[in-house]
Simulated assay, not measured.
Amino acid sequence: MQDMNMDAGQEVQATEEEQAMLEQMFGMALEMIHGEGQSGDAIANMVMQAQDITQGIGQATATVLIGVEKKAGQIPDDIKLPLGQEIVAELSELAVAAGALAEDEVNDGFIDAVVSQAYSEYITLKEQMGTLDPDELEASVSEAEQLMGTSARGGGQQQPQQQPQQQKPRGLLGV
């Protein structure tokens, strides 16, 4: 298991407690991924039957992460990110071993695409379950933006908010 990374160029050493929690959570994830029966089969099918392997691994990552949350309860954000990275790595290795993915395809661009897909799927699943906390979402998006060095919101949100203010209806005839 790797040390917890917070920024591309900055390694942050996990405390013994955080490392133990990460290992425990990853153990639960491995049970879901490699488990016999419905759980393991469902995860394998998500990866192997997806038209796009990044989509399949992303969906499977989100599903496993939510499964671990259900088993373990609330997972702190500083554990959730490295746990997700470990799950992506495990699923990518399994896809390579199964012949669904060439080893040289697993590069930074591939990982970025999978992480983006996993994040979207995670949010969608949490929303469908009715467990999406808007404050948690805002904090999560902000943290992801800092880690990725980009803005998920860009100017897109500000533009629509300004247009209605400039085009206020004045009455039935626009007067």
Rank of each mutant, 00 (worst) to 15 (best):
M6Q: 14
F26D: 08
L22C: 05
E69N: 09
E86V: 05
Q10C: 13
Q55H: 11
D78G: 06
Q10K: 13
G174Y: 10
S116Y: 08
I75F: 04
A100K: 04
P160Y: 07
Q161M: 10
A20L: 04
Q163R: 14
S151K: 13
S142K: 15
G154C: 11
L147M: 15
P82D: 02
E36K: 12
L137Q: 04
T54M: 06
V88A: 04
Q165R: 09
A14P: 01
E105V: 01
K70E: 06
Q74G: 07
Q166T: 07
Q167L: 12
V68R: 00
E11K: 14
G130S: 11
F26C: 11
P160V: 10
Q85A: 13
Q74E: 06
A118F: 04
M1C: 08
G109V: 03
I75C: 03
T61A: 10
E136H: 09
A89P: 03
K168A: 14
E90G: 01
L125H: 04
M4W: 07
I57Q: 00
E69H: 05
G109P: 00
A139M: 12
E121V: 06
Q159T: 14
V88R: 02
F110P: 02
L147G: 15
P169E: 15
Q24F: 10
G58P: 11
M25V: 10
D112Q: 14
M4Q: 14
A102L: 04
Q51T: 12
